[in-house]
Nucleic acid binder design. Sequence first.
DNA 1: CTGAAAGCGCTAACAT
DNA 2: ATGTTAGCGCTTTCAG
Lengths: 333, 333
Amino acid sequence: MATIYDIAKAVGVAKSTVANALSGKGTVSEATRQRILQCAQEMGYRPNIVARSLYSHKTFTLALILPTIANPFYPEIAEAVEHIAREHEYQILLCNTHRDFVIGKQQMERMVSRWVDGYIIMGSSMDIADITTYFQRKLPIVLCDWQENESPLDIPQVSVDFYRAGQLAAQHLLDLGHRNVAVIVDEPQQTLRLEGFRSVLHAAGLQFPQEMIQQGQSTIESGIVATQRLLAGPVRPTAIFTTNDWMALGAIEAIITEGLQVPQDISVIGLDDITAAAHLRPPLTTIAIPKLQLAKEATCLLLSQINEEHETATSRLIEPYLVIRKSTTFASN
Amino acid sequence: MATIYDIAKAVGVAKSTVANALSGKGTVSEATRQRILQCAQEMGYRPNIVARSLYSHKTFTLALILPTIANPFYPEIAEAVEHIAREHEYQILLCNTHRDFVIGKQQMERMVSRWVDGYIIMGSSMDIADITTYFQRKLPIVLCDWQENESPLDIPQVSVDFYRAGQLAAQHLLDLGHRNVAVIVDEPQQTLRLEGFRSVLHAAGLQFPQEMIQQGQSTIESGIVATQRLLAGPVRPTAIFTTNDWMALGAIEAIITEGLQVPQDISVIGLDDITAAAHLRPPLTTIAIPKLQLAKEATCLLLSQINEEHETATSRLIEPYLVIRKSTTFASN
DNA sequence: CTGAAAGCGCTAACAT
DNA sequence: ATGTTAGCGCTTTCAG
């Protein structure tokens, strides 16, 4: 690759003159400017971002750290983050931690060594204690899609009102006449969703025994297993709330395998509204998370933090909403 | 961040001594080495990868360029690429081109400026002419998931035998007794799949009129629209082959909306085997692409190219295979 | 208007 | 065993 120095030699001027001509700063006579520009063109000159970064202490890279891009909740977010970043001339380093805090820390260390300009850290991808340490070292960080209560308030955060999401799910099932409902939840990351759900049941004076709460791992398989446990229990629920859509898919599969029907025998409501949700059979009723908004606000918050536009880096709570499709219906009993 | 020079000052030695102690190269007395290591520890020293890269001309970053991570075919690949890269201490820059060649070239330019060590370029994410130019400039590039006939043979490539994939789909439908089949294909990127399909029909002496071939755009929506056109045609097919699973989802949706059933009235077979395929209602019969293998071979090929292990960078063709689930059945007529 | 020089943090010859 | 020096490519003073 041609360097600024190569051009200087070829044109017969000093490096700094070339730099001035290329950057438009400083003063260069129109004549030499033209000669330099043309020469740069001919030699296929590209500025070296590594060298520039070394001087400027800025790399124009953002890190996107998440549990696994293979979970369909994240690709849309990743795409949106990349899109907005691009508009600001940033590029994205992708990191899947698989919820392994050791990997998360290792990768974070490498990114710090790279002088990554800022970090978007998605919920449960890293140890919040580690993150706090990095934040105290003044690294620009935005937490995205965390439970709003699990991190110190001073780390900027864009999250979803998951308590409200749980409430919406419960209210929908209540409205349909369900009195005997179950939850499959990935605790402790998703406890708030459960608590919101529980609060509405309580307010309605309903029972919500412990055996109606099953543990999942946010995967289809875990949704299947948890549902099988539910169906094998003493009382069969008439509706199941899974705290993400992936597990809802598993729940539906398990129910059908058992010879039952969704929603006639058991209603299922998910949470996330992944793209596929609308196209399942039956189309999935779910609590939608505005993923684009989440990604957009997180990225903008991070960029403003990097550029120190806001001294007070605020946090945002985003409202989920109910999307009624065909996987829920009136309670039959 | 503490630098090598800060440590040198603190310990009272020269920079190079610190460098030697840290790297293990050169010779440093055990006493000073200990003092240096401890000081580095205390000051929280992290090597600066930017400075190191400037000197070494190596950034330990790989680019992953794809149409859009929001298409569920790619996340698994991205995850696998990142995983293998990590084992070799590389990190991944993610780039969604949305099939826009201008964006693709722009982003590529930026990555070249960053001295990215190597590029994995997924099918139809960029203009092959641009790629060829970069390859001629000696950039390490691996094409992944391209039709094997659309690029110059000298660019290393890991692809799927899509012609064979089309054949497998056709053979399966033939085996089930279908004689009146349709295809929804995203041309020209997926022409090979169509040709393979067509070849088997021809060999069996079957008709395959043009109106049985509909154009899709690899999205659910385009699958719906194409299927509606098919259903509105003069003869209704008894089976539809969509050249990716996303479009199969759309096809199933359109068929059901029309009051027909899958597979009783119309069989549907997809291609890709995305994670959700096995969990749809009905579970999708599809031609599976070994995505992990694809990702793994592409990454390894790229790394060996970067390290110049193989002078002759080979190319690989990966075999797809049929996965029979519930969306196809015997022809009823 | 142009050039010389210093420095970003690190590596690696080469002297001492 | 340790220090000096030059250089990776760029930006930015500051002289001429």
